[in-house]
Design a protein around this nucleic acid. Structure first.
Length: 501
RNA sequence: CGCGGGGUGGAGCAGCCAGGUAGCUCACCAGGCUCAUAACCUGGGGGUCGUUCGUUCAAAUCGAACCCCCGCAACCA
């Protein structure tokens, strides 16, 4: 059922933002998914990028006295550097100021204009003089904005409303399109109200850092037609039909739940208008909370992912973020739960198992992987569990249950620890070295397979396990660990964190 | 009655769709082992599954009402 091509996206992040755990989480998630799908033998295209147009960039650049593009060049680096640090293996990093993207946006706008889906009208809304932008009804009511007044302005609109019925039918017919289910219901609820048209422009006198409307040079397009189209620019829409045909529609747009409407409604109707297929899945994940509230800059409770990474390493952070959050729900981030997770899963179970088997093989077999003899019933159990893992992981990943894919793998690790305990190879070795060898082969081979399935989550650490076992690059099938392989010397991979909290 | 999600041992979750001894991880207690990162393994304590009513031989699971928490309610990236 999985198609040979898997195309995953993150949102494009606003260059002006300080990269925070939310950005890091979405992107790590996309990377883990991409790596799992690559491991499952699929061709993968992983697109991320930055959104560089808009009022805030223009203002920030003016304030610093630099050209907007120079400002963007500088700020975009913060994201690409972070992704490098977080071991993000993306295939494309799109910037909305790139000519390839501007071409797509202009071509799309022209086409929709030609077919009558874009028209001029007055836009009336609440305008914040201080912020120099329109604000929402909710924002106005919050009282957080001063100098608010009604403003009417000539603008351009996209006929979004006319696609409402088509969209409702589309969503109702596809249980997998918007996930999780609760979000799907939310959008269907939203669509019970009449859907208006979408304002897509700003006059240049207010905002000139944007893509000019091809049919109205005194305007630039605002937000949606600029940002959302990145998903088709990446795989080569208009520019390269063959490549685009290969990757589009996207397998999954990973997004935060805050931009669900944008993607489910605006983007879908834009694609309808263009006659393009919709992405297979739009998946909205939850937020990391600290205590009660969303982690936000204004509350000063932002956890900088780089700090965590500097202190504990990339892989444990990737492991924690993907194991702890059930995709779609919110999760609590606390240092305490991070440390618990690290110690119980990574140090005690996974890392310690490596030390157990490598120590025993070192002592009893001069560090050479022993051969496997006749398999006992207990041995068969481990082999069966390891053999069954592939399907379990594949199912969990296909259903976006990353935490489950990880947990299934850790269950194998725990099973092996139990097996080693019961088989007691350190005792058996005194009477029957051949049998002890079989036990250790079984345990080590099981560990290798567990490490293989942890590679997408912990590309460095899981690979280190494979290095120790002389099995880098080996596949997930049973029996690929070669007897006679000299185990490499190693330190503890995940030294327990003995930190008072 | 705007729409939707949820309330399960100390914590975080599964189970609910296809009713039938309440499961997992962590924490706690006791024991075992001693290969290993005081790790690992075994056993145990702890839950009237938000409340009430109903359906049923039987309900965490189905239905109704109520209480509480959360999200959405659009042009905000």
């Amino acid at each position: 059922m999985p198609r040979p091509y898997f195309y995953v996206t993150t949102p494009i992040y606003y260059v002006n933002d300080q990269p925070h755990i939310g950005h890091a989480y979405t992107t790590i998630l996309a990377d883990v998914l991409a790596r799992y799908h690559r491991a499952l033998g699929e061709a993968v295209f992983f697109l991320t990028g930055v959104d560089e147009h808009g009022q805030k960039v223009q203002q920030a650049a003016e304030k610093r006295g630099v050209a907007p593009q120079a400002h963007c060049d500088e700020y975009a680096l913060r994201f690409s550097r972070l992704w490098e640090r977080l071991e993000i293996q993306y295939d494309d990093f799109l910037r909305t100021t790139q000519p390839r993207h501007i071409n797509v946006v202009r071509a799309v706008l022209q086409r929709l204009y030609d077919q009558g889906d874009i028209y001029p009208a007055d836009y009336a809304g609440w305008y914040s003089v201080a912020e120099e932008r329109f604000i929402t009804e909710t924002e106005k009511d919050s009282g957080a904005f001063r100098d608010v007044r009604q403003l009417t302005e000539r603008n351009w609109f996209f006929r979004m409303g006319k696609y409402q019925e088509q969209l409702i039918k589309y969503i109702e017919a596809r249980a997998d399109f918007i996930q999780p289910d609760s979000r799907r219901n939310e959008i269907l609820g939203f669509l019970r109200q009449p859907l208006g048209d979408l304002c897509i422009s700003r006059p240049k006198e207010r905002l000139n850092w944007g893509i000019e409307l091809p049919f109205a040079p005194e305007y630039v397009t605002y937000v949606w037609f600029d940002a959302l189209l990145n998903y088709v620019t990446g795989p080569g829409y208009i520019a390269d039909d063959r490549r685009f045909g290969q990757w589009w529609p996207a397998s999954v747009h990973l997004i935060g739940k805050d931009i669900l409407t944008t993607h489910s409604v605006y983007w879908s109707t834009m694609l309808f208008a263009l006659g393009l297929p919709l992405p297979t899945t739009i998946f909205a994940h939850g937020w990391w909370l600290t205590g009660e509230s969303k982690m936000s800059k204004s509350l000063g409770n932002v956890v900088n992912p780089l700090d965590l990474v500097d202190q504990y390493g990339v892989d444990p952070v990737r492991y924690y973020l993907t194991r702890e959050m059930i995709l779609g729900q919110d999760a609590n981030f606390t240092l305490e739960s991070f440390i618990k997770r690290f110690n119980s899963d990574l140090a005690n179970d996974f890392g310690n198992l490596l030390n157990r088997v490598s120590g025993l093989i070192g002592k009893n077999f001069n560090g050479l992987v022993p051969a496997s003899g006749e398999l006992s019933e207990a041995d068969q159990e481990i082999k069966a569990a390891a053999d069954g893992l592939a399907q379990k992981v594949a199912d969990a990943v296909a259903g976006f249950r990353i935490h489950e894919a990880i947990d299934e793998t850790m269950l194998l690790v725990r099973l092996i620890n139990r097996y080693v305990e019961k088989q007691a190879p350190w005792k058996v070795a005194k009477e029957d070295l051949t049998r002890a060898g079989t036990i250790l082969y079984i345990a080590t081979e099981g560990l290798r397979i567990a490490a293989f399935y942890l590679l997408p989550v912990m590309p460095q650490k899981a690979n280190q396990v494979l290095e120790v076992l002389g099995a880098v690059g080996s596949a997930g099938e049973w029996g690929l660990l070669k007897p006679g392989t000299k185990l490499a010397a190693h330190e503890a991979l995940f030294p327990r964190l003995e930190i008072a909290i």
